[in-house]
Amino acid sequence: MTRFLQQRLALAIPTILLTSVVVFLMLHLIPGDPASIYVGENQATPERLEAIREQMGLNRPLYVQYADYVWSAVRGDLGRSLQNDQPVTKIIRERLPNTFKLAAAAMVIAVILGVALGLLAALKHNTWLDTLSMSVALLGVSMPIFWLALLLILFFSVRLQWLPATSQPGLKGLILPAVSLAMLSAATLARLVRSSVLEVLRQDYLTTARAKGLPGRTVILRHAVRNALIPVITVIGLQFGSLLSGAVITETIFARPGLGKLVVDSIQNKDFPTVQGAILILATIYIVMNLLVVLSYALIDPRIRLG
């Protein structure tokens, strides 16, 4: 187990390095000069643009810029934003809690809703409950987040005035964004849980369990659901990762500053240090999430041994 952990952690280092190289190169390949974007529509002579480029450190050869970036990053310094001169670590630190709270809340809602709908559909296979659950899931998959979010705002904020339209500190401000963000994941999970449980229900060992005279509830919860959870856990782990980085629309609509929106805004402004820093953090979170998912297999299914 320890050996396994060491191996995985050692593997994470080249993964993160590789990610940073790819991100670095891709950012420099996208057309557009950060100094030019910074100047925008203001009057600027070519000499002044050059001076700004110099000030931003963009006149040095690419490999020098990269080496400098890595060396600083190792020491915990991710550079300063080209847009507002703030340390990237500070910018990310401000946003990470927001992003985590939103993703975690959305994940909780998605898991509860998704697993419940999926189980219901599987256990009441081919009944109207099954059809209803899967219709809800289909709606969740196909409804655009921005539309759902605006509907929720119109109903719960403007009409009923129960919940704030924009994110405010506290649980109340988290509900609408989390629900709108959770819908897609919930729907995906519901469909997965349904098919996974249906498949397990057909297995021989369940027939055996029933033949032994175990009560239905035990058969379902102890034997069926637990085994059906392996693929579901994998997906939950991946979904959590994408909720962290992919909440751009939700963050924009509910005016929540998070990592997803930061990455998109920074890419548009070609704010290299911020994009690199944010992606580095997101990549690390992804790797850690994956590790946790793998570790959880061993807990759920004793047949799986890590080592």
Binding site: I153, S157, V158, A165, T166, F254
Partner: peptide, 9 residues
């Protein structure tokens, strides 16, 4: 749209 909703609410 959110800005306006926040004003209305």
């Amino acid at each position: 749209a959110t800005r306006l909703a926040a004003l209305q609410s």
